[in-house]
Amino acid sequence: MNRKLYNKFLDKSFTILGLVATLIGLVVLSALLIDVFTDGMGRLSWQFLMSYPSRRPEEAGILSAWVGTVWVMILTGLIAFPIGVMAGIYLEEYEKKTWFSNIIEINIANLAGVPSIIYGLLGLGLFVRVLALERSVLSGAATLAILVLPIIILSTREALRAVPFSIREASYALGATRWQTIRSQVLPAAMPGVLTGAILAMSRAIGETAPLITIGALTYVAFLPTSPISSEFPYISFQGIFDAFTVLPIQIFNWVSRPQKGFFTDAAAGIIVLLMITFIMNGIAVWLRYRYQKKIRW
């Protein structure tokens, strides 16, 4: 009898302990959000979004930072998405179980765990120095693309794996080739999953700071990359990808590192913008996953 009571007590108290442990993260997250919003909300304004950084905290803004972020993100996606999805397709649909495929698999699992700053060193050594791309948008984007590649590959594979084998069978039985089967049946069915992974990868890239600092992205930038649209023939310019840049998280880091209190407020305001972008992207990804999970029932 005693023992039974003891067991009951044990379970009850562990339930409470477990709930507390699980909620700690969320409590801290709330504290973080409240802290940042009370610090930075007052600073958020049109002027803040449209101004270059300045020596005076109350005049400083994030124009060059968010424009740089947009540039780098677009380019990162253009590089990482095709390579990642193609690699995912190969590993899931073509790979035969050999020692080599095993190595590729371990390799990608390992790359997913390599600290981001190491990718920065790779970018510095390879893109900035050897390929002489300097501290350009392209160097930054290439570095981040390599960083998020494992995420895209792994999520692509997962999405492909979720497509039932019977769909592939049906297609092959009609005389489709492997690529026809993938392109017209498997990939469309897996697309929501692939896109979810890609968006999550981009939301990770948007917050990355260390690798871009390592390749030497500037922390004080009072100009924008050359506009892609020009008034002269051929009206389109790729010069921008070779220009120097900064991004939102670096701008925030720069302000946090200053001794003046006024810059902390700027940092908080910048963080609000960064968090909003991150959360919106995550929200889209979750929504996409949810919607298609409901829609397609095999």
């Binding site: 699980t22 997250l29 973080l32 940042v36 948007i206 700071t209 946090v256 960064l274 991150t278 959360f279």
Partner: peptide, 24 residues
């Protein structure tokens, strides 16, 4: 409900955690 909520923690950029550690 809880597992996706915890994923939000992982989505917060690390520079934000840095700010939080230093100033909060």
């Amino acid at each position: 409900t809880v597992k996706p909520a915890l994923e939000i923690l992982a989505a917060v950029p690390t520079v934000v955690y840095g700010y939080f550690a230093l100033l909060f």
